[in-house]
C-alpha cells in the first residue's frame, strides 16, 4: 500500500487548512501508514461489479417550494462573529484570487 511521506501529509494539511508542527507531521505520517494499511482492506471486496452506495436512503427528488421564509436578524447572524463592522463579518485580508 502507498505510504504517506511527511511532505504528503504537509500537502494534505495545506488542503485541509491546518497549520502543523514538524512533530505533528512526523507523527501523523507514521499513524497514517498504520491506519491506511488497515482501511485498505476495503479493496479486497470492492470489485468492479459492486455498485457504490453513497447514501443509505432510497429517497429521490426531495425539494422545497420556492417560498421565502424569515431570515435571521443581522444581529443574530453576526452574533457569533469574531469581528464585525458595518453589519458585515470582518475578516483578515484575503490573499488569493479576485472573485
Amino acid at each position: 500500500m502507498s505510504t504517506l511521506s511527511r511532505a504528503d501529509v504537509a500537502n494534505l494539511a495545506r488542503l485541509a487548512r491546518i497549520e502543523m508542527t514538524d512533530q505533528e507531521l512526523e507523527d501523523l505520517s507514521t499513524e497514517m501508514d498504520v491506519i491506511l494499511t488497515a482501511v485498505a482492506r476495503v479493496q479486497e471486496v470492492a470489485t468492479s461489479d459492486v455498485k457504490p452506495t453513497s447514501h443509505p436512503l432510497p429517497l429521490r427528488n426531495v425539494v422545497r417550494a420556492d417560498v421565502v421564509t424569515p431570515s435571521l436578524t443581522p444581529e443574530a447572524a453576526l452574533s457569533g462573529a469574531p469581528a464585525n463592522e458595518e453589519q458585515r463579518f470582518r475578516v483578515p485580508q484575503i490573499l488569493g484570487e479576485e472573485a
Binding site: 421565502v68 431570515s71 443581522p74 447572524a77 453589519q87
Partner: peptide, 15 residues
Amino acid sequence: GCATVFGAEPNTQTC
C-alpha cells in the same frame, strides 16, 4: 428560504 432581493441591506437575507 432566505429572500434573494438584489441590493438589500448587508446580511439581512441570511440564515
